[in-house]
Amino acid sequence: MSLWRLEWLRMVRTHRWLVLVGVFLTFGVLGPVTARYLADIVGSVAGDITIVVPDPRPVDGILQFVSNATQVGVLAVVVVAASALSIDARVEVAAFLRTRVRHAGGLLWPRYGVIALTAVLALILGTAAAWILTSLLLGELPAGPMIVGTLYGALYLCFAVAVVAAAGALVRSTLPAVLLGIVTLLSLPVIGIIPAVQPWLPSHLVFAVVELLEGEAATTYLRAATVTLVTIPALLLTASWQLERREL
């Protein structure tokens, strides 16, 4: 049994994959349905008040999905990632593994890989569901922006998992790792208030799929994607280094 299989079994036997796929798939279904029937939903609860809801566009189905997925979905990814990437949270289990690997950092890569892969697959499944339902309920969506936007979103999820990996190496327990990960991810949009910085931030990729569907050029996100691609290995190497020097 290799460390990769160990992580695969962790994902499957603890049903963590179900949490990730369930969350993204649920919002993938609910997003287009909500966008399509928003006027009816609002009308049924508004009573005598008249609320004018503009006719839904196809992009609104994806917008609803992405809005929910970036909140609850990312939170689910952070929690699932922290539970596996807090490598030293249980000292006895950590001692068993650490005394049998050449470098403690070697425990990190399979955990990161399996979680990031599962998160990306969950995102792809959710996006596919949202895409299909939007096409059925609201109208066709162009394939190019959908695919490129989803890839940008997947890159952001990989970044989120890397942030949690670094947090898990910095603090020992799972809960502090979750909190540190969330605080770090939430701080990026706050920093993004500065217009000059915003295009460079990984958080700029979150709504890329929606903005691409609305006509934004794919190259707009190259700076953020580049920073993210550089930051992910930097975070993982930092986490690995920290794990190496941390005592059990």
């Binding site: 160990l6 962790r10 036997r13 603890t14 249980r90 006895e92 289990v93 001692a95 068993f96 005394t99």
Partner: peptide, 11 residues
């Protein structure tokens, strides 16, 4: 190495 209270992944 065997620690004093060994523990493994329960699954």
């Amino acid at each position: 190495v065997l620690v004093d209270t060994p523990l493994f992944e329960p699954w």
